[in-house]
Amino acid sequence: MNMDPRPVVEAAGLTRRYGSFVAVDHVSFRVGAGRTVGLIGPNGAGKSTILHALMGLAPSEGRIRVLGREPFRERAALMRDVAFVPDVAVLPGWMRVGRAIDLAAALYPRFRRDRVLAFLERCRIPASHRVRTLSKGLKAQLHLAIATAVDARLLVLDEPTLGLDFLARRAFYDALAAEQSQSSRAILITTHQVDEVEPLLSDLLFVDRGRLVLDCAVDALGARFAALEAAPEHLIEARGLKPFHERRLADRVELYFEGADPATLARFGAVRTPGVADLFIARLGGSAP
């Protein structure tokens, strides 16, 4: 286990403007060593912008430290200790698979070549093939295999399964889960498809319209949030307890509470801990789909 208690990522007041448009607005959070954090939000919420700032791809306002470094100023040095998969399908198509591995082995101070080679063998990918000949799903898995062979304290994945079909997404997250069980590194992953990542996550960061709307450990969700399936006769009373979201279903109404006393809620109907996807929709508020 990783005994280093310092956070791997610290962002305070992270802000990014494009002209008068504020894409990311004073976002602050931490990623602890060994945690698996999901940065979750709808398309255009600012997830990738936050991630790009953390990875030093773009300048930003606010104080950011990743592994104690200032990302934009020290990107090259930082990347020696970070494994970063920026997107699906950014591996250059002209590159031969074996050469992508050679390059990573030469550039990273600690690289487990044997693990990528085992992956190639498992997926029957010849090292002499060019990346462009692989399917989109295999490309994503190859990139993940190269990234996880880097002995880094932080693994960062930006929408790693965007545009992949169901089978490829499944294979990708299975590979990631296997990887996670073997190492103690911190993982930061952005996605707008909550369901598939949910079992992997230890912490949640919800982003909406450039703002952080939730920062919570998964195992603290039960203590903090409750979903009440209110009995019709108690609905008005239950609404008086100020739910932050109301979900109308065909035959019932679900009310979402933060910090409410479970015993009090239980008097008005059945109480449960909301799932991540439910909470995501509830937290993003209103009549969001």
Binding site: R75, M79, L91
Partner: peptide, 20 residues
């Protein structure tokens, strides 16, 4: 070319500075 096919993101994810 590397911006056209977005592979610039791959190169920037490697520990390689922009100057070099």
């Amino acid at each position: 070319a590397e911006r056209r096919d977005r592979s610039v993101l791959y190169w920037k994810a490697l520990p390689l500075g922009d100057a070099i």
